[in-house]
């Protein structure tokens, strides 16, 4: 029996051609913000019923199709505890194509940690040229909100990242997490204007306003 959190999904009945492209995305942020749930949601299409602390680095992947091309999206889900970062996680920063920063909208401390996470990336020479996005998770817990969209948007703007607020758990909103990762994949594939495939009626899942600067970095001039 395999650990229920480890899995690879591919499109039914298909197998990626040998040389299918690989997009390697690293997911970082404080412990408990929901990195494991988000990556699991994307790869397995559901919220895991039992998550566990991530020790070191977990790997999940999913084969997606964009414009007829099959692409392997590899998600590296990292441990949030500080002590793992210094000597353990470095190895996994190599050849990363994109970075997903996660905070918990119900936990202001996880938001305040973001500059440190951005700095960690910078130290691994992942700067602005690497696509980065900011994800505020646990939007289903509206009553416990500690980080306003406005504040988060300001922060995202100042770092030229798009912001997404979402919930790995919220069952009304199954596709949104998928849409976020697909956005990154599209960006990586084409560097063309993003088509943010919002599921119809996804109200909590906001296509958030993008800053001008960020608009430039995420779209081409055509």
């Amino acid at each position: 029996m395999e650990s229920s959190l480890e899995l690879t999904t591919s499109l039914p009945g298909t197998y990626p051609p040998l040389r299918s492209r690989i997009f390697k995305i690293i997911v970082i942020g404080d412990s408990g913000v929901g990195k494991t749930c988000l990556t699991y949601r994307f790869c397995a299409g559901k919220f895991p019923d039992k998550t566990e602390a991530t020790i070191g680095v977990d790997f999940r992947e999913k084969v997606i199709e964009i414009d007829g091309e099959k692409i392997k999206v590899q998600l590296w889900d990292t441990a949030g505890q500080e002590r793992f970062r210094k000597s353990m996680v470095q190895h996994y920063y190599r050849n990363v194509h994109a970075v997903v920063f996660v905070y918990d909208v119900t936990n202001a401390a996880s938001f305040r940690s973001l500059p440190a996470w951005i700095e960690e990336c910078r130290q691994h020479s992942l700067g602005q040229e690497v696509p980065r996005i900011l994800v505020g998770n646990k939007c289903d817990l509206r009553h416990a909100l500690q980080v306003s969209t406005e504040l988060a948007q300001k922060f995202a703007d100042s770092h030229s990242m798009p912001l997404f607020e979402t919930s790995a758990k919220n069952p009304d909103d199954n596709d949104h997490v998928e849409a976020i990762f697909m956005t990154v994949a599209h960006k990586l594939k084409s560097q063309k204007p993003l088509v943010l495939s919002q599921p119809p009626g996804a109200t909590g899942a906001l296509p958030l306003r993008k800053s001008e600067e960020e608009e430039r970095s995420w779209s081409c001039s055509c």
Binding site: E2, S3, E6, T8, I22, K24, F59, E61, Q74
Partner: peptide
């Protein structure tokens, strides 16, 4: 990725 994935399970 492949080897890590294989071995970690």
């Amino acid at each position: 990725a492949s080897v890590h994935h294989l071995l970690s399970q």
